[in-house]
Amino acid sequence: MCKCVAGCADSLSIFRKAYPNRKSYKQEDLAKDLLGASYCAHNASEDVSILGKLIHHLDILSVDLLPHTFSTKSVYNSQLCSREKAKNLPSLRVLIYNSVCKLTTAENIAASGLNLQHLRCIFKRQGEDGLRNIFVMKNCDGQPRVTNTKRTLETVIPALAQYFSRN
């Protein structure tokens, strides 16, 4: 995919910006209203073709398109995170149930590739400092692995330490 696709664009946000007061942003409605065209919706090749015509109809400048774009690498990373989250989140549900962390934090932990056993092992080897370090460690995009939000760190790390000390 990355060899033949330069990047991706969020066409919905582009059309919302170009036509802010529309009732519907369904591609079928946009095609009918803007191009006077109907087509076989949900047919991949026709969907792509009409989307290209809609974007061309906007006559949008590259500089205006840029804020709505993302790289193929970010799509790939997003898919990896989703896969990791699905795999690791079930083991973290016990933390949510015991009010150690909220669902969004558990999802961030899971998406980063960590599960309950990983956290337990980190705590056993390095204590609270190890947990804090793994949460704030920067990923390949320069973002924290889980979070670097002070409030979250100040509540979740001690709660994790307390949970692992008891269990």
Rank of each mutant, 00 (worst) to 15 (best):
119 L>H: 08
51 L>R: 05
157 I>M: 09
114 L>I: 05
11 S>G: 03
93 R>Y: 07
85 K>G: 01
16 R>H: 05
160 L>R: 04
71 S>N: 10
99 S>W: 02
107 E>C: 09
105 T>C: 14
66 L>V: 13
42 H>W: 00
61 L>M: 10
112 S>Q: 05
145 R>D: 03
23 K>H: 03
50 I>R: 02
107 E>M: 08
107 E>G: 03
104 T>R: 13
10 D>T: 01
37 A>H: 07
139 N>K: 02
5 V>S: 10
89 L>N: 12
54 L>H: 07
3 K>H: 13
36 G>H: 06
86 A>Y: 02
113 G>N: 06
74 S>P: 01
131 L>Y: 01
158 P>L: 06
114 L>G: 08
35 L>S: 02
81 C>E: 15
109 I>H: 03
46 E>T: 07
144 P>W: 03
52 G>E: 13
127 G>Y: 02
110 A>I: 06
64 D>I: 00
72 T>C: 15
35 L>F: 06
35 L>V: 10
97 Y>M: 06
18 A>R: 11
96 I>V: 15
162 Q>T: 12
119 L>I: 13
10 D>M: 05
163 Y>C: 08
100 V>H: 06
80 L>V: 12
78 S>W: 07
4 C>V: 15
140 C>Q: 11
75 V>S: 12
29 D>T: 10
3 K>F: 14
78 S>A: 10
159 A>W: 00
123 F>W: 15
151 R>G: 15
70 F>D: 11
24 S>A: 00
131 L>P: 10
122 I>E: 07
10 D>L: 04
162 Q>L: 12
133 N>V: 03
152 T>L: 12
16 R>Y: 03
26 K>T: 01
72 T>R: 08
23 K>D: 09
117 Q>G: 00
